[in-house]
């Protein structure tokens, strides 16, 4: 297993958010986490990246125990995080934003090559390479954020609500990009409120409810589950 989370409890100070959550992601696999707002989905991703202040349990990634690790050392191990809400550096150019993603690996010789690969995946970014990221559309900013995370050549990509607040056409575009990233061999842990999209992309999934893992299974199983259909797919 590439990522193996066991009995993770996490939260902010006195407020616990996650309770004994266990989850695993294999190399190259795409796993989705479903759940309503405040279920703890973002906290789960932030705990893997080491930026939630309180963490207990075990998060094993590629032979490393992350639970006591400082957040600044985690991207180096091969985890790319695309935070919720399209966090780009607004006054840096698109290219500089991408470079920032490789900040922890700035001695790496293959960066130019990787940048080229990302520009191929998102041709729009090549057109706007020298434009300030803050002036891009929402979808383009999301591409910048995803591209930035890919610049560190991660083994695991954490995607937090990539389709949130985007126009339907753009959602499709982002969706396609995720499929391509997954096909290229990067493992993806996808958090989505758009459950239909999440279950299409993923092979397995988990449902979080108030910080508890209430349901787990293959994407097909989840999509067939009556509760999931009612609560998240609206069928």
């Amino acid at each position: 297993m590439l990522l193996e989370i066991k009995d993770l409890c996490a939260g902010y100070g006195a407020a616990p958010v996650l309770h004994n959550v266990s989850l695993s992601v294999d190399s190259g696999e795409t796993v989705s986490v479903l759940g309503a707002n405040t279920a703890g989905k973002s906290t789960l991703l932030r705990s893997i990246s080491g930026i939630t202040p309180v963490r207990r349990g075990s998060i094993k990634f590629d032979g490393h125990e992350l639970i006591d690790m400082n957040g600044k050392d985690i991207p180096k191990l091969g985890i790319g995080h695309v935070p919720e809400g399209r966090h780009v550096f607004p006054k840096m150019s698109v290219v500089d934003n991408l470079w920032m993603g490789a900040f922890c690996k700035r001695k790496d010789k293959k960066l130019a090559e990787r940048m080229d690969g990302i520009m191929q995946m998102f041709p729009r970014l090549r057109e706007r390479a020298s434009q300030l990221a803050g002036t891009l559309s929402g979808g383009e900013q999301q591409m910048v954020a995803i591209g930035r995370a890919l610049m560190s050549n991660p083994k695991l990509l954490l995607l937090d609500e990539p389709s949130h607040g985007l126009a339907p056409v753009v959602v499709d575009e982002v969706h396609e990009a995720i499929v391509r990233i997954a096909k290229s061999g990067v493992a993806v842990l996808l958090v989505e409120q758009n459950a239909a999209l999440a279950l299409q992309v993923a092979s397995r999934g988990m449902v979080l409810q108030s910080g508890h893992a209430v349901l787990e299974g293959t994407a097909a199983e989840l999509a067939a589950n009556p509760d999931v259909r009612k609560a998240y797919l609206g069928i």
């Binding site: 990246s49 985690i74 840096m92 920032m100 954020a145 930035r148």
Partner: peptide, 13 residues
Amino acid sequence: RENEQAAEVSGID
């Protein structure tokens, strides 16, 4: 300065 969250996930302490 520009985006603390994005800096954090880029591996900046």
